[in-house]
């Protein structure tokens, strides 16, 4: 894509205005001049709801494990943080919850399986691992050999709080329309 750094064109005004609007909606940027705050807030919330649905489709056990808490957990984490795509958004959130010991067992298993299958440095797109690997999260252990992944040990179920609802799994990045 042509983008930042290209010579100024007659459309520079529109390009800047569009960039300001997107930054204000997804990256905590200053509201662009002249926009009413109410509709901006409604749009910001609607984008987060769509995004939560997309991430839930890519990380079904993360969303299901959090149950009724999925929606607020995701939007609290995602507000002001631009998307890196649904796969990475869910991965980053799962790791953050893991660090806070707040990852439900089913979600820990989902994360362990992904960690075993793909190499993800938190910065670039995840890539398939070329050599055998072990993925661990919250007591779950998954192993990958020649591209095949098995969950060796499930995460311990110590709490009864997980799975207390059905996630909003509406739509996905690939299939949602308008």
């Amino acid at each position: 894509m042509t983008g930042a750094g290209s010579a100024p064109t007659p459309r520079a005004g529109l390009a800047e205005r569009q960039a300001e609007l997107v930054a204000a909606l997804v990256a905590g940027g200053e509201p662009p001049t002249g926009f009413a705050p109410g509709p901006l807030a409604a749009t910001r919330a609607a984008l987060l709801r769509k995004r939560a649905g997309e991430v839930a489709r890519h990380w079904p056990l993360l969303a299901a494990g959090l149950g009724a808490r999925w929606s607020t957990t995701f939007t609290d984490w995602a507000a002001g943080r631009p998307t890196a795509g649904s796969l990475r958004d869910g991965w980053d959130l799962a790791r953050a919850l893991h660090d806070r010991h707040a990852l439900p067992p089913a979600a820990a298993e989902e994360l362990a399986v992904r960690e075993a299958r793909l190499r993800y440095d938190g910065v670039r797109a995840p890539r398939p691992r070329r050599v055998p690997a072990v993925g661990r999260a919250g007591g779950a252990v998954a192993v990958q050999i020649a591209g095949r992944v098995r969950l060796l040990r499930p995460a311990p179920r110590v709490s009864t709080r997980a799975g207390d609802g059905v996630p909003d799994a509406a739509g996905s990045e690939l299939w949602i329309s308008d």
Binding site: A19, A23, A27, T43, T83
Partner: peptide, 28 residues
């Protein structure tokens, strides 16, 4: 496809956003 934009300034909005109803946007 849509009369909309979904990214700008290197950021993905994540969904369809409206254009200004301006001559500049019509040209774009």
């Amino acid at each position: 496809e849509h009369i909309a934009f979904v990214r700008a300034g290197g950021l993905e909005a994540g969904h369809l956003l409206p254009l200004p109803r301006s001559r500049e946007a019509v040209d774009a």
